[in-house]
Amino acid sequence: MDASAAQKLMPESGGKASAPEATIEVKGLSLSFDTADGPVQALSNVDLRIARGEFVSFIGPSGCGKTTLLRAVADLETPTAGSIRVNGLSPGEARASRAYGYVFQAPALYPWRTVARNIALPLEIMGVPRKERDARVEKGLELVNLAGFGAKYPWQLSGGMQQRASIARALSFDPDLLLMDEPFGALDEIVRDMLNQQLLSLWDVTGKTVLFVTHSIPEAVFLSTRIVVMSPRPGRVYDVIDCDFPRDRQLEIRETPEFLAIANRVRQGLREGHSYDG
């Protein structure tokens, strides 16, 4: 993504990274689903504070509740116990105030809309006038390096381009928070590396707070300021690891001893927290 262009285009959001107050505060959060086989404890007593401008990754095996936690923050799931505050509001209020953009595992673009009209979708719903909508879509396309692809339909784009369009859609209404649920999980390694680097510069430029669910240890270590290691049955936070590489880190840092040390600690946490007896 073109960092200098984006900086010019989104100056108002560039400075938000400085304020260190908690954006997300999770206290004693538990969430269980009723299934045919009885209740399943997806999350058990989770505590978490995320400051403005952080990039926090959630990593863990399937069933550790990382996606559920993200969905609870987004008010797509209702907790059984405990509290979540987003910008000091309840998740429902935060959702109504359009505090976050959500990027799903699949791009979930509407096939009957062009890329530009997909990005405009949230703006249409929020009643943004036509002229401003067009301007914001243009910015969004540039931000994710899709300038010139606005008139294409989703099926004409590669998987990586589709997911970039969905990121532009999530950012089109300039929310403080970006919630990403394994956005690059379905993409190949090469595309993934490229998108990781682009996402990082996007984060650097916009100063958004990012919550990022992933399966990949290198991805988590490369992207994050903090890594939350989770373990299953019941889903809980096993370890929280600080990861303070410079904001404009390059892919090469993955060869450094510091990087490998953090990756090792994540791997160890995953191994210890992961009971295979289920």
Binding site: A74, D75, L76, R95, A96, R98, Y100, G101, Y102, F104, Q105, A106, A108, Y110, W112, L121, P122, E124, I125, M126
Partner: peptide, 27 residues
């Protein structure tokens, strides 16, 4: 519409009428 497409509308706090017109009807 797939659950993901509907979740998307929910994240925008879309009204039922908006979800109908912009998702269910074209789908």
């Amino acid at each position: 519409p797939e659950p993901l497409q509907l979740d998307l509308m929910r994240t925008y706090s879309a009204t039922r009428a908006q979800t109908f017109l912009k998702l269910r009807a074209p789908a």
